[in-house]
């Protein structure tokens, strides 16, 4: 396990690369899902707002 982490002496370089990748992809995944939901919520909000005003 220690060998695995050490990566032949290059551990810092290898693991920082993989960590940054995980962060970048993770943030993209979260933001993408949020974008979809945000639109749905915003539109639901608008719709409900319109219905409240309807009198006819």
């Amino acid at each position: 396990m220690a060998e695995f982490l050490a990566m032949g002496g290059y551990g810092a370089y290898v693991w920082s690369s993989y960590t940054i990748a995980a962060l970048v992809l993770g943030v993209n995944a979260v933001l993408a899902r949020r974008a979809e939901r945000a639109v749905l919520h915003a539109l639901a909000h608008d719709l409900n707002g319109d219905d409240d005003d309807a009198t006819a």
Binding site: N28, A29, A32, R33, A35, E36, R37, A38, V39, L40, L43, A44, D46, L47, N48, D51
Partner: peptide, 27 residues
């Protein structure tokens, strides 16, 4: 493709916000 698709689906709803199908879906 997974991430782009999520954004695209949101974009579609925004583009078609005033159509019946979106209003049905959301309302």
């Amino acid at each position: 493709f997974a991430a782009a698709l999520a954004r695209v689906r949101g974009g579609i709803l925004a583009y078609d916000r005033n159509t019946n199908w979106v209003r049905d879906l959301v309302g």
